[in-house]
Amino acid sequence: MNPENCTLYSGGLKGAETVFGETAEKFKVNEVIYTFEGHKLSRDKNTRILTEEELERGDISMELASRMMHRTYYETEKIRRVLQTIFHMVNSGYQVFVIGSIQDDGSVKGGTGWAVQLAKIFNRPLHVFDQPKEKWYTWKDGWQEDQPHIKYDTFVGSGTRYLSDAGRAAIEKLFDDSFA
């Protein structure tokens, strides 16, 4: 694959999303960072500020999101906008890569888990680097250990704000293995 024909979609937050963006830039992969008015980013290159109308297209009941994620999301405008932004990331990128922690119930910890749930709903190729286990897993009706590669010209890079050295190395290896 030619990296210059690929586009990374992310949210530009500190941690995994910043490293995905920096690594994409190093490999000359195009990047689009979805955000909303007033959202503080760690990486603000190639930002696309979503309009109110666009955000509404990614709206979901907080009750439904809570049920799907097996946790409680309270009705706050910021959390709602973050979930709406994640919708646009996953809707734009075909293959989904996440750095996080797979929970016993199969969900992924934190807001990052919403990208995972949407990827499952949209039937997208989905890969999670589980930081505590320091291994990649691919979703195939359950988590299976894997060593993924970027295989599509649009992909999502998301994950924890608390990126470990192993998580950083996993992102860099993903790009190296895919484009070197």
Rank of each mutant, 00 (worst) to 15 (best):
A24I: 04
E63L: 06
T23V: 05
E22L: 04
E56K: 11
R48E: 07
K40Q: 14
E56L: 07
E56P: 15
M62I: 12
K40P: 02
N30V: 09
F36Y: 15
G58T: 09
K26E: 10
S66T: 04
L41V: 00
K45A: 11
H70L: 06
T47N: 02
F20L: 00
Y34V: 00
S42C: 10
R57Q: 12
R57Y: 09
V19E: 05
R48C: 07
E63K: 10
T51E: 04
G38Y: 09
N30P: 03
G58V: 10
E56Y: 13
E31R: 05
D44H: 10
D44Q: 14
L64Y: 04
I60H: 09
R43K: 08
H70A: 13
D44I: 03
E53N: 15
M62S: 14
N46V: 04
K45Y: 14
N30Y: 12
E25T: 14
D44M: 14
L55W: 02
K28A: 08
T35R: 12
F36K: 05
I49P: 02
S42W: 05
E25H: 05
E31I: 11
L50C: 08
T23H: 01
T72L: 12
E25Y: 13
E22Y: 01
Y34I: 05
T35Y: 07
F20V: 00
H39D: 05
T23P: 01
T35M: 02
F20W: 03
K26P: 00
E52T: 07
A65M: 10
E22H: 02
E22I: 00
S66N: 11
K40G: 03
V32F: 10
E37P: 06
G58K: 13
K28E: 05
N30M: 09
F27D: 13
H39M: 06
R67G: 06
R71T: 05
E31Y: 13
F20R: 00
E31S: 09
K28T: 05
L64S: 15
M68Q: 06
R71S: 15
H39R: 11
M68P: 01
E31D: 14
D44V: 04
T23F: 04
M68C: 10
V19R: 02
E22D: 03
L50K: 10
F36W: 15
V29D: 05
E52C: 06
A24F: 11
K28R: 13
T23D: 03
I49R: 12
L50I: 08
M69D: 07
I49V: 03
F27P: 06
S61M: 12
H39Q: 15
D44P: 02
G21E: 11
S66C: 10
F20C: 00
V32I: 13
E22R: 03
T35V: 04
V19T: 10
M68D: 11
E53P: 00
R48V: 15
M69N: 13
K26F: 09
G58N: 08
S61W: 09
R57W: 08
G38F: 12
R43I: 01
L50M: 06
F27V: 03
L41T: 02
R57P: 00
T72V: 13
T35N: 12
G21I: 01
